[in-house]
């Protein structure tokens, strides 16, 4: 439980700290939203894991499939 609280507070602190980063160099409008890249990293990663799991259901075969 203590670990979880520590982690959540670390995540929150890190997110707060990142609000201070200037976004002048961003190429697209949505990149200027506060904490866009944090959300993108998290959602993108979940998306890839989910996609891999769903595709795996279709594409994964036994190891002797080609023998």
């Amino acid at each position: 439980m203590k670990k979880k609280i520590a982690l959540i507070s670390a995540v929150l602190l890190y997110s707060l700290a990142n609000l201070a980063i200037p976004t002048d160099e961003a190429h697209f409008v949505w990149e200027k939203f506060p904490l866009f890249n944090l959300a993108f990293g998290f959602i993108g990663c979940v998306f890839i894991i989910a996609l891999a799991k769903i595709l795996g259901k279709i594409l994964q075969k036994n190891e002797d499939y080609y023998d």
């Binding site: 890190y14 890249n37 959300a39 998290f42 993108g44 990663c45 894991i49």
Partner: peptide, 13 residues
Amino acid sequence: ATTLQLLLFSGLA
């Protein structure tokens, strides 16, 4: 900062 944000939060996921 952008790179670290992307990577740390995908690590969290």
